[in-house]
Design a protein around this nucleic acid. Structure first.
Lengths: 225, 225, 225, 225
DNA sequence: TATGAATGAGATTTCATTCAT
DNA sequence: GATGAATGAAATCTCATTCAT
């Protein structure tokens, strides 16, 4: 959902070049900002550079976003925070076993976040969150909490339906999140590789971790009810 | 862990208090720098604050270390890079199965690095390395490469002695490193926890991962020689 | 006092609504500008805000007034500088003693300027004039000088008719102006009041000052002709 | 009281050039700041210019004062707010009639504030106070309130000793302050003078106002006790 | 005529580094 | 060796003014 357009706009297809650019601006700026924030971090990214990459001047950036922090928040919402309603709905409608649901969850997460630049935002918050408490709070509220809530609902479904053992859900959530967080950090760090290509296969790693988690959640004979 | 002392210090214990202080300076600075770099990151740590925490003036810091980057490199050497000779020697002398050796490796790593502030340096390099290419290069050369080499020798030993299957060593290295890196990142990121306590038990996690890796390395009947 | 209208407007009352609006533009802008300049000062008033308060866009403001300074000059002319022809005529036609004339002068000044927002313009020029030499010069030429000239004529009339002692006119002018200026500054300065209500009664103050001045101008026996 | 010096300093008269400069710095900066703030106003004065006039670089200014606002507050304290203890003591010790005291008060005020650049600070607060609420609040607390309190004590003394009629003190305070405020504004505005020299004699004006106020405070037969 | 998106010079503030003492 | 005052490049954000539509 880039820029919301009114119904009137929808039926008036004749636009000036200027109008078209204007509507595209926020999206262009958000894209440029995502690129640069992920590439260089929040503090090290200069506002002017974001503007330049979006093809506008310094001043124009501040026409659309009142400060660098607000720009960053908008980037978070665009790429992570704002998508949870959609994702939640998708999981509400899911039919199938909860084990399948969990595997699906980790897979689509990898496709939609892990593989994309959005994964860099999590790495960024882990690095710089401490230096920008407002941003950290915002990220926790808009991304971490909804993410936890979504996972909690999945795990609860499994327990309620007798598919999973009645484990400590909060603990289990971390078992699911851990490999995802790890992959995001790994992906954005050339650091751990001596020369060139990392020898870690993310999809295989994720699948292995998923099965490990599911094994831990499995109902085994002899467990006390 | 107060201030790590060099080998020289270790064997020259008789000093006047004044000489002592003087000789101790760099160590105090390195300790202060480690604390602050890990706590706030490289870019966000102010030189003056490092000096202040070490109880000296800003000028003194630059007397011992010509720049903030050199200070950081010294911190890396003191805590990670400079310890590989000792660690290598320890493993050269190791007697026992290679499986035991690998388990021991992961355990002592956890004790000597994972649990200490030094683990923050890895997280730091993964976060900020991109903005400081010189530091990244230095870290790769002084920490990542020796670490890989050490693991490579262990794995090679296992294969040479017929204890491990003849796997792709470069790939296997990452299977060992991944959980260690993961723990370092996890430990230094309050970010992913919504409220308070993380629910991960590092030692158990590490042991599980070790066994998983060893299982993958195990020689099984039917493997082709 | 809604929007002051020019003499032209006064005698051409039949217009279509559209024309009306168009013609009213500059007046609306001048009114908005007066409000804001007086409220926030010249430098601190943003052009866009003036336009917004007048209900037009930023661009339109610059269509009518080529710069913020020119806008301010126009505000001065509309409210002060441009009214001297009318005021001069009124005083040319005045019949009565010159003492009455002087009292009348101070009273109508209070009604038409002192009590209105226009008084804020004088305070503003005294505050910010130093930073905007062009504006200061303009104000001196269009407001201060005509004001002085008007007073000079009144005083000269009094002396010529033998009603006033033949004092130094330039000096006497300041005796008349000082209390008026004082009231304008007082009115626009919440600064000097610790809590709430100022305890000064402007009309009484002005009347007292007028009598003091008149006493100083009075012809007393024993004065040398 | 420029820069407070410790006892140790007092008896170690041998100083390096650098030390001497260092001690002089805050005073030099405050003097430069007073000059420029009075000349151009708070908003229009650039920090760098203050530094330059004090003969130091931009950065040095911020070594001594953490922000432009704090610098301004320091200027206020140095020139006005910080002097009330001294002034209060002087008036506590005053011997003589309260009428003499009030005349003395207005005269020394003129000598110590009105005639000096410090008078420009009041003009400045009246002009720009509205745009800088923090500064306005500070000024009210540190200058306006102590000033009012001092005058209140003088007036109360006169009433208590039967020298003054039992008037409304808060009202009377403004009668005393008004001409002083007026003079400060008048002095700092070339605005009201057509060409060159103002024809207003401040001392005479002040003396006249003092007598007017004293007349208003005088105990007259027929006043009800 | 009217719009409002775009510009960019300019202001405050930070901090690694230097160097006189 | 040790100090800490001084520097100045660099970063964020504002707003009068322009100009394509």
């Amino acid at each position: 959902m880039p820029t919301p357009r009114s119904l009137v706009d929808k039926f008036c297809p004749v636009r000036s070049k200027r109008e078209r650019r204007k509507e595209a601006r926020p999206g262009e700026l958000l894209a440029a900002a995502l690129d640069l924030f992920v590439e260089k971090g929040f503090a090290a990214t200069r506002s002017e550079e974001v503007a330049a990459r979006a093809g506008v001047s310094k001043g124009t950036l501040f026409l659309y976003f009142p400060s660098k922090e607000e720009l960053f928040k908008a980037v978070i919402m665009e790429n992570l925070g704002g998508r949870f309603t959609e994702w939640n709905a998708e999981f509400e409608a899911f039919e199938g076993t909860t084990a399948e649901m969990l595997r699906y969850c980790m897979n689509v997460w990898w496709e939609r976040v892990g593989l994309t630049k959005a994964s860099g935002l999590t790495k960024l918050m882990m690095s710089e969150g401490g230096n920008f408490p407002d941003l950290a709070e915002f990220y926790r509220e808009q991304v971490v909490r909804p993410g936890h809530d979504l996972l909690r609902r999945i795990l609860q479904r499994g327990i309620d339906r007798g598919e999973f053992a009645p484990v400590d859900i909060d603990h289990a959530i971390y078992s699911v999140i851990a490999p995802m967080v790890f992959l995001m950090l790994w992906k954005h760090s050339a650091m751990v590789c001596v020369d060139g290509e990392s020898a870690l296969d993310p999809e295989k790693f994720l699948a292995t971790q998923a099965e490990t988690v599911l094994y831990g959640l499995s109902v085994r004979p002899g467990d006390k009810a």
